[in-house]
Every structure is written in structure tokens, then in C-alpha cells.
Simulated scan of single mutants.
Amino acid sequence: MLTLALLSLVLSQSCSSDDVEDKLDQEIQQEEEQQQDETEEEETEETEDENASPTDFELSSSIAETTSIELDWSDATDPEKKAISYAVFLGDTEIVSSIDASEFTLTELTPNTAYDIKIVASDEEGLTSELITNIKTKEEASTTTATVSLGEANIAVNTPTLEEDFGTLVVPVKLIGENGEAITASERIKIKYQINSDVAFQYDYSIRTAMPVYIEEGESETAIKVEVKTDAMIELNDESFSIMIISVEGAELDETKSDATYIIAGPPEEDLPIASMNGPKVDITWSHPDAQVDAVLFKRTGETGQTYSSVGFYSTNEDSESFVLEGKSDGNYFLNIERRNDEIFGEIEVSVLITQPDGTRMYRTFLLTSNKDVVDFDVVNDEYTFEFQF
């Protein structure tokens, strides 16, 4: 009996110990689970506290006008994929807020003024990133009328052909404001011009400026250049040529100052050849000394099968020829200028001066390639009547 009682006591104590251990294990597990829940909750709260601001963004373009600035910027993004809105500030003043588009135009601005501009990107939690820039509006267009006119050249109009003045004639083309002062061009101005001449010829001057000419943006003038070479021919009067502006794009033309005339002076009157009392004198000159030029005088006839015959031949290897039409019988004549084979390429310029015994003179200049009938004349009772054919 005693043995059974002891065994029963041992078993009872053993079962009680197991229960205690199980209970302890359960309490430890519950505590660990609670700590894990608290840790997860803290991590969640920490994650919510670390919400990031929108990313940086850049100004893509800005177009400034006189009273407005058009802005366009790249999109800012939110790391948590939340919606972004924008606000635009002019200095410290908010102009617009809570716009979704990444563009905006500032209006009612002052011309020629620099503005501090701030663009702020915000997420739903109020976190922000910003862009700051400075942009200047355009200067207001001038209402002053700009006119183009020819200015004073480096050679006076009545003295360009004195020997010491031969050289390049530089005629300025200027942009002038309403007050008569030079102004700069706000854009490129295109100018067309031409040179007119009834007396001066290509051997006397040469154009050195291509047409059209331009007054560039920011400049106030350009120039037309003409090289004055020499007085290559015998003339009765001073030669002249005029430079004229014929059109302007980008400004107005001052028509009172759109042209100017320049003189190439001929030889003094006393240096001209004096006519022979026996008949008119003919002087022929040409521009190139190596050219081979002949003058042939023909008389028209009424003979059957022949309409004219040669009655005079004048030839030289120099650059001039002079002869007197003397002893010609009454009738109708014509003078032909012929060019023999030479090594000169292209045309040459030929001038013919006829001086009557009473001092009356006739003058013409022409370009010669091969031959040309120059002048017709009639002789009646020793009186000569001339008529140029070109």
C-alpha cells in the first residue's frame, strides 16, 4: 500500500510539472507574436513617415514676348505614384495653383523686364520640389519710321575724276530714324540698286559691290562701291553715271535721297581736235591698243549690179585713227568700222567724233565685235550732213 501511494504521488507531481512547462511555452509564444506585431506596426508607421518628395524637373522651353512669357516644363513624378500638381509664382506672388498641365503662360507683363519665376510641384501629401528661373520680356517694337537713303560718298560728285581722285567711290547706304540720326536695324534689310549711264561706259568705271546689298540686324549702314578707272574715250562733255536705290525690304525708302550722280570729266574743250577747213575731221578711238580696227568709207551708187563702192580706207595699229573727209563729190556716203582678226577676246568699245569746219561736233560710242556701219552722210555743194546709225 505504501509503495502504491508513493508511486501515485510521483506521477501526480510529474503531470503538474508538464502542465507548468506547457503554460510557460504558450506565454513565451504569445509574447513573441505580440512583439512581432508591434515591430510590423512600427515599420509601417516609419514607412509612412518617409514619403518622398516629387522628383526634380526642368524648364523645357520659354518663349518671351513683349508682354507675355510662355513656359513649358518637364513632368515631375512622385515615388509613391501619387498625383502631382503645380503652382507658378512671379517673384513672391502666386499666379496660379493646383494645375495638372506642365505648361502655363504669364500675361500682362511689362516689356523689356526681367522676371524671377518659380514653379512648384506638389504631391497629395504636400511634399514639394521647385524650379527657379529668370526670364526677360522683349523690348517693345519701336514705332519710329526707319528710312533708307544714300549718304555722302568719299568722293564729291563733281570731283571724282581728277587724277588724284581716281580710285574706289564708296557710297554709304544708311538707315535713318525720324530725327535724322542713324539707327540700327531690328532685322536684316534688303536693298536693290542700279547704275544708270547714258555717257559713261564700262571702261571708265567698274561696279565692285554685288546686288542686292544688306544692312544687317544691329547695323546702321552698308555701302555701294564703284571703281572709277579713267576717262578712256574722247568725249564732248563730261561723262556721268547715277547710283539709284530701286527697292527696299524691311524699311521705307527716302525717295529724296535715293539716287546720286557722279561725273567722269572729259578733256578740256581746247584739247579737242580742230576741224580742217577742207572738210570735216573724223577721230576714231578704241579701248584696247592691240585691237586691229579699220575705217572704210563707201559711196552709194546707182550703177546696175553695184550699190556702193569704197572711196576711202583708213587703218592703224594704234588705238586711234584720225582723218579728214576732204574733196568729196556730192552724193551719199557711209562709214563702216571693221575689226580685223586679233587676239583680243570679246567686244571692244569704239568711239567716233566728227568735227565740222565750223566747230560743230557729233559723238557716239558703241561696242564692236566684227564690223558696223557707223554713220551716213550727204555731201551737197561741199556741205556735209551726218546721221549716226546706232
Rank of each mutant, 00 (worst) to 15 (best):
Q35H: 08
V20P: 02
P273S: 06
G331M: 05
T137N: 04
N154Q: 03
E140L: 15
N332T: 13
I344Q: 15
L253K: 01
H288T: 12
V170R: 01
V96H: 11
Q29F: 13
Q30R: 15
I84K: 05
V293L: 05
V379D: 06
D123I: 04
D259R: 11
E303D: 06
A251W: 00
D78C: 03
E33S: 12
D116N: 14
I189P: 01
D231F: 08
N154K: 00
A64K: 03
L71K: 02
T77I: 12
S97P: 04
S102N: 14
L9W: 05
V173M: 00
G250I: 02
S240P: 01
I63S: 13
S16A: 13
S240R: 09
E139Y: 03
E387Y: 05
D294W: 09
L272M: 06
E235D: 14
Q292K: 13
T301R: 02
I155Y: 04
E338C: 02
V296M: 07
E45N: 13
R339M: 05
S309M: 09
D72M: 05
L106Q: 09
E163R: 11
C15A: 13
Y193G: 00
E43A: 14
D290K: 13
Y115P: 04
A83Q: 10
F166K: 12
Q202L: 14
Q30L: 14
D376V: 09
S74M: 03
I224S: 00
F377R: 02
D283K: 14
L253H: 03
D56R: 15
D37Q: 15
E70I: 08
E387G: 06
P54K: 07
D116H: 07
W73T: 04
V88F: 08
P79S: 08
F313I: 01
E124C: 02
R361Q: 14
G218Q: 06
T304N: 09
Q35V: 11
N51Y: 14
G266C: 08
G279T: 11
R300D: 06
D25T: 08
D19M: 12
S206Y: 08
S129M: 02
Q34T: 10
S186M: 05
I207E: 09
E124K: 10
K328Y: 15
K23C: 10
A182V: 08
S8Q: 09
V157S: 09
V20D: 10
T113Y: 11
A156D: 07
H288R: 14
D75L: 10
R188C: 03
L297M: 04
S315A: 06
V157F: 04
D72V: 06
T285K: 15
C15E: 11
G359N: 11
L353R: 04
Y308L: 00
F104R: 04
Q26M: 12
E338T: 05
D22T: 09
I183R: 00
E21H: 11
P268V: 12
Y193L: 00
F377D: 03
L4T: 11
S310T: 10
I95M: 14
S276T: 04
V293W: 02
T304G: 04
Y115S: 05
N332D: 14
S98Q: 12
N371E: 09
G302V: 03
V20N: 11
T184Q: 13
C15H: 12
E318N: 11
E217G: 01
F388P: 03
C15F: 13
R339T: 05
L272I: 04
F298Y: 15
L7D: 10
E219A: 10
E140D: 12
